[in-house]
Amino acid sequence: MFMKSKKLSTIKILSILILFYTNFMSIALASTFSEEQTVNITKNLRCLICQGQTIHESNSDFAESMKKYIKSELEKGKTDEEIFSSLVTKYGQWIVYDPGISRNTLLLWSLPLLLFLIGGVIIANKIFRKHEL
């Protein structure tokens, strides 16, 4: 009985974890067009001619133009996703800091989670099955 209830609680913990996780993934960016929205977009774009800087942080010609470009696109009523995807077709996936989920990045996202699950199984084995090692 004692063992069983313990197992149940690990399942609970796991399901709560998954819940947290999925909810975190769904946090949306800002909803209305504002200065904040521009910043949110430019913070997720790499300044391609700089070294390790975002568009938001950079004062280079390229970054300044990009900021204006994004503002004008937002004024035209484009959504964040539309802007990101059009920039990706123009400059490649390299420009966005969020790798997103695609065929190429499936392993990137799933590998750590898979390792976490495997680790969990190994540890559960150690703790709950009292065999001598």
Binding site: L48, I49, D61, F62, E64, S65, M66, K68, Y69, S72, K90, Y91
Partner: peptide, 13 residues
């Protein structure tokens, strides 16, 4: 003037 036209082409500078 603003450098935004060039971005349409995917230019760097």
């Amino acid at each position: 003037k603003q450098g935004t036209i060039s971005i349409n082409f995917g230019a760097y500078g």
